[in-house]
Amino acid sequence: MYRLRRLKSQLFTALSIAVAILVFATIAHILLSVAVNGVGVIASAGIDFFVKPPPPPGAGLEGGIGPALAGTIILVALSAVLGVPLAVLTAVFLAEFPHSRFSRLVKLFTNSLLEIPTVLVGMLVYVTLVTSTGSYSILAGAVALSIVLLPYTSTYVERALEMVPATYKEAGYSIGLKKAQVVWYVTSRIARRGIAAGILIGLAKAAGETAPLLFTLGGALYSYPTSPASLLEPGNAIPLLIFTLTLAPYENWHSVAWGAALILTLMVLGLIIAVRLVVREVKV
């Protein structure tokens, strides 16, 4: 009897290990496909890959992701400017007044914002901003991305603020500091690494999202953002460019998409690794 039970257990273990290996083989396959195909394309296009627009459909690999790379950098920076202050202030509100009725409501809605399909964020910005300005624009894309970033950053920053031991805050109160002063001089200084991690997570999300940009950014393939006025004109971003290139039936566009995916993966994974480094040092 016991032998049978043991056999069953060993079978289950073997099966589970096989499943785990299959999962990690899949993720390795994805990463390797991106790395191998991406490196090949970037190597053959050289430095042009980072500065030139994509090649014409079906016409070799003489080009790259210049406009989209510039667009992603501008979009991430702009969405951080718009979204991070809101996220941090929301987090301070939630951490400092956790028992007010309104703060429970805010928390509920922040959580739902976290789970709302991001394509709907694109629809929202389209209906409100794009139709009223009459054009797709980098600004509209940045607004959509800042909405995506907001709940992630505010959730992580709130957690970091809550982890600051009450004794430090009480020490602040005991020397007559007001609540706002304690947040500024005590809590935020102690939680600074956690706050930084929350901001980086938000940036990683904003850099990698595609769906909010579908109806806001415009997907301009060849034009570069050159002046501040370009913010009100259509632009492009790496994720959106990959989407466009992959949907199209051209081999050379697919190759450029692999190269773009490599750059995007490196950017996003770099941010995630940065978060891990920052947070690990907090724990020590």
Binding site: F93, T110, I116, L150, K178
Partner: peptide, 29 residues
């Protein structure tokens, strides 16, 4: 204390953003 109330009401509009976004989205849809 009054200054804490002031802090509360200063943060309130910023904290309401996510709430406003979700409600705006729902009503627009």
């Amino acid at each position: 204390p009054r200054h804490d109330k002031l802090f509360y009401y200063t943060l309130l509009p910023f904290a309401s953003t996510s709430l406003a976004i979700v409600l705006l989205l729902a009503s627009i849809l």
